[in-house]
Nucleic acid binder design. Sequence first.
DNA 1: CGAATATGCTTCGAACTTGAAGCATGCCAC
DNA 2: GTGGCATGCTTCAAGTTCGAAGCATATTCG
Lengths: 168, 168
Amino acid sequence: MSHETAPLDAEQLGAYFALMEVSTLLQHAVDEHLRADGDLSYVQFQILARLTDAPDGKLRMTDLADGVVYSRSGLTYQAGLLEKRALITRTPAPDDERSVIVTVTDTGRGLVAQVLPGHIDVVRRLLFDSLHKRDLATLGSVLGRVREHMRAAPPRSAKPRAARPRTA
Amino acid sequence: MSHETAPLDAEQLGAYFALMEVSTLLQHAVDEHLRADGDLSYVQFQILARLTDAPDGKLRMTDLADGVVYSRSGLTYQAGLLEKRALITRTPAPDDERSVIVTVTDTGRGLVAQVLPGHIDVVRRLLFDSLHKRDLATLGSVLGRVREHMRAAPPRSAKPRAARPRTA
DNA sequence: CGAATATGCTTCGAACTTGAAGCATGCCAC
DNA sequence: GTGGCATGCTTCAAGTTCGAAGCATATTCG
């Protein structure tokens, strides 16, 4: 409790703003290219990529949603779109009737393969071309540690407030 | 052109994913608190914060939009909401009839002051509590450099593609 | 077993976002 | 000075997002 309301110093503020701005710009750039190259949004690409990496190309809806940091209802919506384009299939899980198993199709894998080079290229140009090997190593390890820290902290819901009408 | 399609190595991929995941998680957490504390979305807070920092608390719509990396139409929408809550005012620019000058009101400043401590607290807990002083310095300087690099590169629009119906 | 609770996904309504189109004002060249 | 392009904002339609509520299947515990 030693720091409850102490302000962030200038260095911290700068790092925070830089982080948010960099990620926003990067996401916009990547999104643009994915759309041009394969008519995919960033979220859709993330879903497909994650499935492509998964064993057998299969994942449950919930795990997928957690993986991409996305709402469940949002995922249902996007899964519907991807299924319509035959990039994935949805089948009830054999062991748990409630679960839905999402699977990448060959078409889906093909599309990922098609857009991946361009995607990577954008990331490289924007993010890595300005970094030395040393910086890269630091950035990766520092962010990796932060990620672990965040995953551990459960800020999820935990809000015993009376249901406010959500005006804004 | 030496690297047009070379894949990213594992280290780069890791840093990229960590960056995106950290920023997403952080943004969600911050958004949640802002909403609980002051009924503000992250975007709305950004707008108010930027105005609060600007000389005289005034900015033109376009500059504001560029500052928060946001679409113009989106900004018009949010400005409407904020104006309704008397957090900002919109007045035509005296020197250029086309421009609109946005100004934070005292109420707006008050609200920012009210939510700021909580905001900062979330950022600190999630982002900085896991970092040593040394890491922080590196993160800040590295991201700062990346940001400069990105701002320089003009990926903006520049898409002479035929207007596709934007299917997905 | 059977009720109570938890878990997994979808549906629903409302809010937010975006690019394109629309309008107005400014700027430039002729 | 005036026709043509540029700039700044708003409106519009379509798509996306989220949380809450709804449903169905699992699990737990009496």
